[in-house]
Nucleic acid binder design. Structure first.
Ligand SMILES: [Zn+2]
Ligand SMILES: [Zn+2]
Ligand SMILES: [Zn+2]
Ligand SMILES: [Zn+2]
Lengths: 147, 147
DNA sequence: ACTTTAAATAGAACTCATTTCTATTTAAGT
DNA sequence: ACTTAAATAGAAATGAGTTCTATTTAAAGT
């Protein structure tokens, strides 16, 4: 695992620091999206001292470089998750348990075509995210179904 | 126009107040998305006293009731716009001039099917937004092309 | 191993968009 | 006009996220 992270970080010209590896490790071993504070809480168990700005900074760097992704959450706070799927895709996000699953569907081509044809504009980026409740949470019959 | 607003507000069981009408009026006569503060600035020209919380509260109420829409912006601040198109659709948002145009395309059905089939989950909401540069801004050749 | 240097970090302080609170005003139904 | 719940102003608070600076550290070169 460790070697894995090192390779990733080296290829990005980021220094291989224990904090960076720990952040990646936490995200990779979690199927839900996490907030910076939640990651911080876990980090504090591993390091005698670690600053919240370090968490924010690293998460931002890693997401800028597309190693991790951001969730667009109704409460407008930041959440991140790691997805091993390196090809372009989108996500089905559970509003209850925060589980994230891949959706291998993207209408980007059609969107780009429509934007080009009707508005003569240029597409730079797109957001596509599906929010709902996953199987497990549906089975729990609405328990804990908070956003 | 005014009658229009009244009808809308009445049908939502919202009181018809001058501030509400002014907020709707500002948004309807603007093809770009606006921040609460920008709306406040315009409101202060029309009212001797008006509080920023009133703007925030009304924008939230109106968007909850689907009269106006939120923009998902990279800077994570709130922006709103009014769209006359009452049927389900999405938007092409210019990152430079903030112009908003309708995209009459939505993959919701396919997404719902994939989520149902592969994950056995339930779709509650979805976000689809295309960011880019509109014709006008492209013609300006990159001038002012800030996010 | 030792030196050097730029990148990374800790911790404190700060920012400012958004929210909360409370007293007052107002829309609208009787 | 009277009543009442909704809406508002203004002040104050909140808190997620950012900035700043001194210190530490990764890693490249010797
Ligand atoms: Zn994924
Ligand atoms: Zn896509
Ligand atoms: Zn529209
Ligand atoms: Zn849709």
């Amino acid at each position: 695992m460790n070697t894995d992270f090192s390779t990733i970080l080296r290829s990005l010209n980021l220094k291989i620091t224990p904090k960076r590896i720990a952040i990646l490790d936490i995200l990779m071993n979690e199927s839900s999206y996490l907030s910076p504070e939640e990651i911080w809480t876990r980090m504090k168990k591993q390091f005698r001292s670690v600053g919240l700005p370090t968490i924010y900074r690293n998460l931002e760097e890693l997401s800028e470089r597309n190693i991790i992704s951001k969730v667009t959450h109704p409460n407008r706070q930041l959440y991140y998750y790691f997805c091993a799927n390196r090809s372009h895709h989108h996500h089905f996000v559970c509003l209850s348990c925060r589980n994230v699953e891949d959706i291998n569907f993207c209408a980007l081509d059609e969107l780009r075509r429509e934007v080009k044809r009707k508005h003569n504009g240029k597409v730079i980026s797109h957001i596509l995210q599906v929010n709902g409740y996953c199987r497990n949470c549906l089975n729990k019959e609405g328990k804990d179904n908070e956003i």
